[in-house]
Write a protein that binds this DNA or RNA. Structure first.
Lengths: 209, 209
DNA sequence: CAAACAATACGTAGAACTACGTATTTTTAC
DNA sequence: GTAAAAATACGTAGTTCTACGTATTGTTTG
């Protein structure tokens, strides 16, 4: 693989143009480009390029969904993700799909070249800068202390259910729910106030599955 | 002004390249480019271009801060904002700073040309698409019903303060705070539960100034 | 098969919030 | 300058949440 064939995809016209121009200037073999996920997957299927450089957020199919389909179909196309996403969980998800590179859009263009160069040697590339730019998932530390039932109680508490209502939903006594709440507060060392648990529940609601 | 002089600025290399290439291909007179706000302002000051095309989110100075400084210094440079920001409030802020165009990065490249063409005729340009893409600020409807003190009470309630504590902070009786809470609940027709107000407060906390 | 953990449930007491009032003073607005 | 709105404060009663217990029954897991 001397001059790898490449397809690219991004739904932002400016970025797609920037990427395409850059690659062509450097004499890469850009077969075609797509402006959404469906088009991109079609290109991969039809052209079987060596490399696909994909955005994550795209209409119809995300870059990760494309990576998954390629993996399932055992395509040989190697995938580089170029994205704004700094979420560590998304990065981990990408890695588990066997992608060959993960480049943040704020990185210099040379990072893209580094990445392609690595792939020519059949090794994946993750910028040393990357790890310091990723944003760690916070909060879950506290949630790990809680049992599934306790999380369920939190979830319903965040939805403004009383202990009685939660008990009815889970077919247990309101006293049991009160005990769960008490245990949660103790574990997490919440303030001894009426609304502490509800406010905490509301705060971490997004992280409760 | 036949061939306007232009400077551009964006902290994302890919976008900066896309924009610069595009403009040069179309034979615009691109004097220079900057990759952060400070550089961009320097360019405007030094080169006094006819047009500056700026991103909002940039290190050191945002595009809006640059627009403000240009306005205060009575520079003649006309400003076009190119951004991801769909917040209506940011759009309104931009408009009040007298910018000549507001283009979303997801828009086609021709929108940029339309914008420049309008400026050549000394009129501002806002894409008809724009309004449907902007995300309205929601919620405030309910908040408009509340008095300043009531909002203050909500703010402190969201921070898990009791009526007594809020009273101490605002130098009034806890009974007064309870009355405020009661009035809020009545106005907003909240459920008659202990945690309703706290959870509501937490929900709209971001909109309380 | 124990020991640890999780889930279940109750007793009692107190604190905070809620609802429904009334009522006075201050501020805002026409 | 008066009427409306907002802010102040209290009474009473009822509900819910919390804290501090105790205690039984399952479920994991080494």
């Amino acid at each position: 693989m001397k001059t790898p064939s490449i397809i690219i995809a991004d739904d932002h016209p400016l970025i797609l143009k920037g990427l395409e121009d850059f690659l062509k200037e450097r004499h890469y073999n850009v077969l075609d480009s797509a402006k959404n996920g469906k088009q991109a997957y079609q290109l991969i299927e039809d052209l079987q390029p060596d490399i696909a450089i994909l955005d994550i957020q795209m209409p119809y199919l995300t870059g990760l969904q494309i990576a998954e389909k390629c993996k399932n179909n055992e395509f040989n196309t190697k995938i580089i993700i170029i994205t704004f996403e700094k979420d560590e969980s998304i990065y981990n998800q990408a890695k588990s799909l066997g992608i060959y590179g993960y480049v943040l859009k704020e990185f210099a263009l040379t990072e893209i070249e580094n990445c392609i160069a690595s792939i020519l040697e059949n090794t994946s590339y993750f910028s040393p800068e990357l790890l310091s730019h990723l944003e760690k998932e916070q909060v879950p530390e506290e949630l790990k202390l809680l049992t599934p039932t306790e999380k369920e109680v939190l979830k319903l508490t965040a939805k403004n259910k009383t202990a009685k209502e939660i008990g009815d939903i889970l077919f247990v006594s309101n006293r049991t729910i009160e005990k769960h709440k008490s245990n949660i507060s103790k574990k997490l060392k919440l303030e001894c106030k009426h609304t502490s648990l509800a406010l905490f529940a509301k705060e971490i609601e997004p992280y409760l599955e």
